[in-house]
Write a protein that binds this DNA or RNA. Structure first.
Lengths: 233, 233
DNA sequence: ACATCTTAGTGTATTTATGACACAAAGATA
DNA sequence: TATCTTTGTGTCATAAATACACTAAGATGT
């Protein structure tokens, strides 16, 4: 057998999917979006939204398509998490999965149960059901990733409304890091980063002193990242 | 068309490869191991060692096999870097690549030009040749990754001999971070981590004061990681 | 034997970042 | 107008990061 034909022999095609870990925030707790599978395998089990990568789309395009088709989520930032390649991870045939994660505002999207899905629901991280395939492992990795990332990257703003109070932001960080944070130190640090714009607007209809709204300052962020700036919470 | 057959229709198989970014160290500079391709496409171009994932091996097993087959490197720690899925990244057909990186002691391995390779050579990072496929991008990501990682994980010891002097270790860190480090501060910090074992042995045949050898203290490392310890350089 | 050369090895003072902690101000409600 | 709830703010103590210069050891050359 020539080397060339040996290579041709060894090259075997594999099914490739993406799975999406979608974090949401309800103002108090971090949530995860899961779908109930309509089909075998793992029919009626909860799972991450996922699906096959088409021959003419990148994995990232695939993940965005799946977010739209299976959960009604569009125009969000996604990031590649890890690629899972265990030989037996799909009982049907050899399938690898490129996992992505994203953070969305739970109230900005109306969940739809799309193609192949019976339901789409938000679950608290502490109350996840049994998951299909190796999705539990994927979720675990995603949680570790955002915990690590939130400390040195300005992620998380996607989960809030465009205008938010510092208390809301702090509550989000406490939910992600799963630990209480001192209010004054948090404010000192987060404002010190210079990434928040104080708005001339306050909360309304609250039975206490109204909090000032802030928004994420995209311009400042771009300036800082261009300078190779690196910040930590 | 039923939903089921639609799915079957949409599931398309894809060629899957791994590519390996192999960092070495010659005592002064960080190096990268490249191979010269024997075959089209990119015949006679330099490239990362890579190859197809077989149907019954994980991507990590594949990467380790390729390290052995194409570069003669065995028994090393490897870590998944990123998965590249551009539709046109391989001119032959749709191919995705799961990239891995590893750090090895340049002098512990005799390079071999394995299957499909004309040569295997170490290149300085600042003098890389034009690379095949999207390998330049993969290398860039790998460099960023180890720079980030070296600051909070005890990677890098793999690139040195088992016994090393603190100056050698510092030179390595300076090569990875591409910046000078203060000798006293480096020693204070690295010894303060408690991950180095001072040996009762010194350099020989050096035309100056002989430096003490140290080795990586695996036991101490395991103890610390069990406690959820996190350290930074 | 002595001078010279090169790198190893060490401590302190300054600056910066982190972490702990408490009370007055605003605004709605009764 | 008293009460309730949450906002918004500063200081001090401790820990970590950084800047900085000389002596010690050992080989080599005269």
């Amino acid at each position: 057998m020539s080397k060339e034909s040996l290579i041709q022999h060894q090259r075997q095609l594999i099914a490739v999917t993406t799975d999406c870990v979608i974090f949401g925030f309800d103002g108090t707790k971090l949530k995860l979006l899961l779908i109930e599978r309509e089909k075998k395998p793992f029919k009626h089990n909860w799972a991450l939204p996922g699906g096959y990568v088409f021959i003419k789309e990148t994995a990232e395009e695939c993940a965005k398509r799946i977010l739209a088709e299976k959960a009604g989520i569009k125009n969000v930032f996604i990031e590649q998490l890890y690629t899972y390649t265990d030989v037996k991870r799909d009982p049907r045939e050899r399938t690898i999965s490129i996992a992505y994660y994203t953070l969305v505002n739970q109230y900005q999207y109306e969940l739809i149960a799309g193609r192949d899905t019976l339901k789409a629901e938000w679950f608290e991280l502490s109350q996840l059901p049994r998951l299909a395939f190796d999705h539990r492992e994927i979720v675990k990795t995603a949680i570790e990733r955002i915990k690590g990332k939130v400390s040195y990257q300005p992620i998380g703003f996607e989960l809030l409304d465009e205008k938010f109070t510092l208390t809301q932001l702090q509550t989000l960080y406490e939910a992600i890091l799963n630990t209480p944070i001192d209010k004054r130190n948090f404010r000192k640090k987060i404002l010190g980063m210079g990434l928040l714009k104080a708005l001339d607007e306050k909360e309304k209809n609250v039975a206490h002193k109204a909090a000032r709204f802030y928004s994420f300052d995209n311009k400042a962020y771009k300036k800082l990242t261009q300078k190779g700036f690196h910040f930590e919470l």
